[in-house]
Every structure is written in structure tokens, then in C-alpha cells.
């Protein structure tokens, strides 16, 4: 892919519009980015997107900002990071400046609230669609370990309300231990 001005414009435009339309904040932006950058533009693989999301989650700060920086840097180094973060922080800046000056009207406007409610359904559909596709890939690996980690994490977060960093740490550690175990077994097989 060529890193020309067209590429940067597209990167800025995409992060800007995603940030401008992402309700719910936080992790909800990831499925939307996945849909845009992986499925629509084909700029990176889903696996890579999940890696970036895992890294973003383990750093402080707003998730949307973290993922944008990682994505921009991954695609085009520092200039990429610059454009994607600019695209991400500008919409809240403008929208909130506007809204805070017309707050009373905004809060009581029927049209605004109806449009927002409608958009919510769209966001929900994108999130479910992407979650299903992602879960499909995990099943597709045909490795019990990863499927087990996925279900463990789902239960831990949804039912037991476990701290997300702790869930990520346990998942990473499990996979790491599994690798060492496999290596050891391989060695034993090859020496015997």
C-alpha cells in the first residue's frame, strides 16, 4: 500500500468519522474499526487488529485514543499515528464545544434523541456482527486452549465482573505456560 497523501487523508477521514459516530465509547470502537480497516479497506488482518487491541487495553487512557495511535503507527509509523490521533480527538472536541453551548436545547430535543436511538441499533448490530466473526476465527483455529480462554474471559468479565487487566494477565500467562509445556514435550519426543 502506498503511503501517499491519499493514504493519510483516508486514514484521517476514517478515524475522524469513526470517532464522530461511536457511541458508548471505549471498546465499542474496536468492532467499528475492525469493520472499517479490516473488512472494508483491507489494510490489516483481524489477528493484527486483536493484537493492537490487547496492547491498547493494557495501557492507561481512553481506549479509542490508544487503539487509534497503535493502528496509525502500525500502518505508517509516526506520521500515521499523528493523523489517526488527530482524527480521533477532533470530533469530541468540536461536538462537545457545540453541545455545551446549546446544552438545554440538545437535552430536550426530540429529533436529536430519536436519531441517536436509531444509531444505537446500528452500533449494536455492528458490534454483534464483528463479535460473531471474531469468535468464528477463534473456533476456526481448532485449538481447545484458545476457545477455553475465550469462554473463561467471557464468564470472568460478564458474570464475575473480574478486573479486565487481571483477565488479560491470566489469559497471557496460560498461553505462555502452554508454549513452554509444548516445547518441553517436543524436546522429550525428539530425544527419546
Amino acid at each position: 500500500m502506498q503511503r501517499d497523501s491519499k493514504f493519510y487523508r483516508k486514514l484521517f477521514q476514517s478515524t475522524f468519522t469513526l470517532s464522530a459516530f461511536t457511541f458508548g465509547g471505549g471498546t465499542v470502537i474496536v468492532p467499528l474499526m475492525q469493520q472499517k480497516f479490516v473488512n472494508e479497506l483491507g489494510w490489516l488482518e483481524q489477528e493484527e487488529m486483536l493484537n493492537l487491541c490487547a496492547i491498547a487495553q493494557s495501557a492507561p487512557g481512553p481506549m479509542a485514543v490508544n487503539v487509534s495511535i497503535l493502528l496509525g503507527y502500525h500502518l505508517a509509523g509516526l506520521p500515521g499515528a499523528f493523523f489517526s490521533i488527530l482524527g480521533t480527538i477532533m470530533p469530541p472536541l468540536f461536538i462537545l464545544t457545540l453541545v455545551s453551548s446549546i446544552y438545554t436545547w440538545f437535552k430536550s430535543s426530540t429529533v436529536v434523541s430519536l436519531v441517536l436511538r436509531g444509531m444505537q441499533a446500528g452500533v449494536a448490530a455492528v458490534v454483534v456482527d464483528v463479535s460473531l466473526k471474531m469468535a468464528g476465527t477463534v473456533f476456526g483455529q481448532k485449538r481447545i486452549l484458545y476457545v477455553a480462554i475465550m469462554f473463561f474471559a467471557l464468564l470472568a468479565i460478564l458474570v464475575f465482573k473480574m478486573n479486565i487487566l487481571l483477565v488479560l494477565a491470566i489469559s497471557a500467562l496460560t498461553s505462555l505456560l502452554n508454549m513452554y509445556y509444548m516445547k518441553k514435550r517436543e524436546r522429550r519426543v525428539s530425544t527419546s
Partner: peptide, 15 residues
């Protein structure tokens, strides 16, 4: 590879 399935769960639960 251990983090990826956990992140999928994270995204699904945020949804």
C-alpha cells in the same frame, strides 16, 4: 495468542 481470544470476549461483553 493468549490475549486475542480474551480480547474477543472483551469486545463481545462490551457489546
Amino acid at each position: 495468542s493468549g490475549l486475542r481470544p480474551a480480547v474477543v470476549a472483551l469486545i463481545a461483553s462490551a457489546g
